[in-house]
Design a protein around this nucleic acid. Structure first.
Length: 889
RNA sequence: GGGAGUUUAGCUCAGUUGGUUUAGAGCAUCUGCCUUACAAGCAGAGGGUCACAGGUUCGACUCCUGUAACUCCCA
């Protein structure tokens, strides 16, 4: 069959993916082999594939494919996350487009729409992963809202509640006024903003100017309950205990002192608004101050809590005004009163919602929390396992981040005011008593047992809220094997704990830490052994990929254009563990070029295939070519060992680099040239077959990184019944250093002779006579045939002295002389040698100085000393050689 | 404001307990080649006082201190 000029991935990719599926290579069932398990970080159910996923899943696929080829029973679980807030936001937006407002729907109606949406758009991303070649066990695809999964989440909530680790309380939470829900601390993203600092004067009760406060949020002024200063601040000491009047609302509030305030920010006086700021809330509690909330759930002004102040018309006119409009309006009104001293530009930070981008309000609200202090006390291994490397982080520096977070852990707000998700299994009676149980029936039984006033027909109302998405995903490694819903089943016993987790550093707290916690609480072991953190994918200029910037490439488009293998190569070649990768399409081009290189090597072999000669001719001539074979065998061993070692250390990018260079440089540029028969000559059968075997072995090494082309070439090389996909990789050990050194000598000789030819502008076709003055002639005997061939020499002679009228080249401790019929100019040659000589002489001086240093001689280790002495003698030999050569020029 | 990390060739990065011929790779650049698989290629070459300033040491890219810039995390 005629092979195409270049590698054409499209048809080949699909063909092999289908073949692998047909052969069920990705399907795993427990057996006697060692398991290698990865659970995919479940992407949002409505997600589409982007660069981050490509990187993440390529890495997982490489690990899984390598493990499969090492004889492990590999199981890679695909799945999606219901992503309550993100998905609900999308469904709400979709409904709005169709003219439906969420509040007009019942919970059941809304959920019906949500499920419809999920069925239609959910899991597109999983289909897209097939394009990338991901070898996932599709039969095990999981979803965090599957029936069993849902039940497990509820079960865990009840269990933690019964253990006293979950409580309900009115606390300051992060409130998203757009999606109308509480958020955990981790879901709040702090952003730098240009804001303003407003200086407002609060008058004393007698009408005299009292104290000036700097605030970034004048709109909350109507909720002020105190002014706080530092007790050490002498400017204000006389004012402490006095009262001032809040502008507009005319409320009298005290001036108090607290160490929390630092004298050098703003004016040194802080307004205390406990309903709208976390720190103010803390101070409020300490000083027993009331919290007056002046914003409703969507961040609009409400006077509902201001009744005691008998608000006037002005205040009532603010009703329903958005917080940002209100800020402007109140500022104007304070200015009108003459109490606005000045406005300064200020660079501050605001918290925004990770999902909606809305500016977060701190808000007092009744929510469910996990008591993390108590939880950690019960499961201290959650921290220690990472610190003592029972769970290994790659890169290890992520341990610091992990440690810092866990040491300062805060309670986890797990309730969300949403409908899409696992509904909180708590029921309330009319008296407000709480009953936590799986069903209303059980809640009712509890109520009757605990509460004599509760009658058969009394009303029970289930909590309206759902649980934080991460409260379900922290069970992922266990529940994908039904470890919670069906504890102790065969799958969970075999596959759990999983082997490796591959995920982004950005969700180390959200997800990794919590999985570890859940792992210890519910299985007494860590859920995984190694965690590989990928960096963030950025664009060429180092910017984050975002929809707004429009700098995230269309991944499927790239795969169509370059092929899956080139895409995987491009993503991997530039991504050391834990470092951000700067995505540049040119690395995909490099991948595509690599494909072509492989393809052309295949074409060369196919050409040879039809031109084989019986191996009997491998007598005198063939002998020489055996060096190429013996040498490349050693290079394969060497790189095979290196790759195995790098894979163990999760240095995947480097592993790919050494394989790339082995194939491109050693195999294509050197080995194939050495093995190549003369023009239109047949190839020795033995050499041909060995070359096919080498190429196959290379494909085996490369397969985890570039699965499609390697499978194709593996089958193109020979008719075969097996597939590379589940073939066992060769275990490499040991190598012959002498052979490798001789190979290096040959390469160096060829390179320096070619360089000399270049510098003398000898045409490639022009033959030369080569004279070798070698320290060790025998080494050259095994390679002289190849040397002659590669530098286009008509003959090679050994000599003990300089050859007059030739071009002299010094390579290490050996010398070459090129005899040529064309005239040559020795000046360039001379210049080079002088440069080299200068270099060596200063090098020698440095070494002699070192060796003349008594303290060095006393302190240095013997082998270091010996090395220095060898350097010295080597340099002396070389200097002598160059000196002699210069004399002949 | 607190913490962590980074700074090595034009770019992206290696450099594993301080000594391995006065720092390596890929990409990019330059020179010469359509040489019987490959111009998406081949053969060569050039390019770095290892951010800066001190210190420890016989010896520092490597260890310590400080400074600067950038990145991330937390408040």
């Amino acid at each position: 069959m005629e092979l195409s000029k270049n590698f054409e991935p499209q048809a080949i990719d699909d063909k092999w993916y289908k073949h692998w599926l047909d052969k069920q290579y990705f399907k795993s069932v427990p057996d006697s082999r060692e398991a290698y398990t990865i659970v995919m970080p479940p992407p949002n159910v409505t997600g589409v594939l982007h660069m981050g996923h490509a990187l993440n899943n390529t890495i997982q696929d490489i690990l899984i494919r390598r493990a499969r080829m090492e004889g492990k029973n590999t199981c890679w679980i695909p799945g999606t996350d219901h992503a309550s807030i993100a998905t609900e936001a999308k469904v709400v937006a979709m409904l709005r487009e169709r003219g439906i407002i969420k509040s007009s729907l019942t919970r059941e109606e809304f959920l019906a729409y949500a499920w419809e949406w999920k069925e239609k758009y959910g899991g597109i991303i999983l289909q897209q992963l097939k394009k990338l070649g991901c070898s996932l066990d599709w039969d095990r695809t999981a979803f965090t809202m599957d029936k069993d999964y849902y039940a497990s989440v509820v079960k865990i909530f009840i269990d933690l509640f019964n253990k006293g680790l979950i409580y309900r309380g009115k606390r300051m939470v992060n409130w998203d006024p757009v999606s109308l829900t509480a958020l955990s601390d981790e879901e709040v993203i702090f952003k730098d903003v240009d804001s303003k600092l407003y200086y407002v004067n609060y008058l004393l009760t007698d009408g005299r100017p009292g104290i000036t406060v700097a605030t970034t949020r004048p709109e909350t002024i109507l909720g002020d309950v105190a002014i706080c200063v530092s007790p050490a601040d002498e400017r204000y000491s006389s004012l402490i205990g006095k009262e001032v009047i809040v502008p507009i609302i005319n409320r009298k509030i005290p001036i108090i002192a607290d160490d929390y305030v630092t004298a050098d920010f703003g004016t040194g006086a802080l307004k205390i608004t406990p309903a709208h700021d976390k720190n103010d809330h803390t101070i409020g509690l300490k000083h027993k101050l009331k919290a007056i909330d002046t914003l409703d759930l969507s961040g609009k002004f409400t006077a509902a809590e201001l009744e005691e102040d008998h608000p006037g018309e002005q205040v009532l006119s603010y009703e329903g005004m958005d917080r940002f409009a209100l800020r402007k309006k109140i500022t104007e009104d304070i200015a009108t009163l003459g109490q606005l001293e000045k406005i300064e530009e200020y660079k501050g930070q605001v918290g925004t919602s990770e999902r909606t981008g809305a500016v977060i309000e701190s808000k007092l609200s009744m929510q469910w929390f996990i008591d993390m202090q108590a939880f950690m006390k019960k499961n201290p291994q959650s921290l220690s396992a990472v610190m003592d490397d029972s769970i290994r982080f790659h890169p290890a520096k992520a341990k610091n981040t992990y440690n810092h977070w866990l040491e300062n852990i805060k309670d986890w707000c797990i309730s969300r005011q949403l409908w899409w998700g696992q509904r909180i299994p708590a029921w309330y009676d009319t008296a407000g008593n709480i009953y936590v149980s799986e069903t209303e029936m059980e809640a009712r039984e509890q109520a009757i047992k605990r509460n004599s006033a509760f009658a058969e027909n009394s009303v029970l109302r289930q909590d309206e809220d759902v649980l934080d998405t991460w409260f379900s995903s922290w069970l992922w490694p266990m529940e994908v094997f039904k470890g919670i819903s069906n504890p102790g089943n065969e799958d969970v016993k075999y596959y759990y704990p999983t082997t490796t987790l591959v995920t982004g550093q950005d969700i180390i707290f959200f997800w990794v830490a919590r999985m570890v916690m859940a792992g210890y609480e519910y299985s007494s072991v860590a859920p995984f052994r190694d965690v590989y953190f990928t960096g963030m994918v950025r664009d060429k200029q180092g910017r984050k990929m975002s929809k707004q910037l429009g700098n995230s490439p269309d991944l499927l488009g790239l795969i169509d254009h370059y092929g899956a293998d080139a895409t995987r190569f491009g993503v991997m070649i530039a991504s050391p563990a834990g470092n951000d990768i700067l995505f540049d399409e040119s690395s995909l081009e490099q991948g595509r070029n690599f494909n072509n290189k492989l393809w052309n090597a295949l074409k060369l072999l196919k050409m040879w295939e039809g031109r084989q000669a019986a191996s009997a001719t491998a007598s005198a001539e063939g002998e020489h070519d055996l060096f190429a074979i013996r040498w490349f065998r050693q290079r394969l061993n060497q790189v095979g060992c290196e790759v195995a070692d790098l894979m163990l250390q999760f240095r995947l990018s480097e592993a790919l680099k050494v394989i790339y260079s082995l194939i491109w440089d050693d195999f294509c540029s050197w080995y194939l040239e050495w093995a190549k028969p003369g023009f239109e000559q047949p190839i020795d059968q033995l050499i041909y077959q060995t070359t096919v075997d080498f190429f196959s072995e290379l494909m085996l090494l490369l397969h985890p990184f570039m699965p499609f082309i390697t499978e194709e070439i593996y089958h193109q090389l020979e008719e075969r019944d097996d597939d590379i996909c589940n073939k066992q990789i060769i275990t490499y050990n040991g190598m012959e250093k002498d052979l490798l050194a001789t190979g290096d000598l040959l390469k160096a000789a060829v390179t320096s002779l070619r360089d000399a030819r270049n510098k003398q502008q000898l045409k490639p076709k022009e033959q030369i006579v080569l004279h070798v003055q070698a320290e060790n002639e025998n080494t050259y005997k095994t390679i002289e045939h190849l040397l002659v061939k590669q530098v286009n020499a008509s003959s090679l002679n050994y000599t003990r002295e300089a050859v007059a009228g030739s071009i002299g080249i010094v390579m290490g401790k050996d010398k070459f002389y090129i005899e040529t019929t064309s005239p040559f100019d020795s000046s360039a040659q001379k210049e080079n040698l002088v440069k080299e000589l200068n270099h060596l002489q200063s090098f020698l001086i440095a070494i002699e100085k070192k060796l003349g240093n008594q303290q060095f001689l006393q302190n240095a280790k013997p082998d270091v000393l010996m090395m220095e002495q060898k350097k010295k003698s080597d340099a002396e030999v070389k200097i002598k050689l160059i000196g002699e050569t210069l004399l002949t020029l």
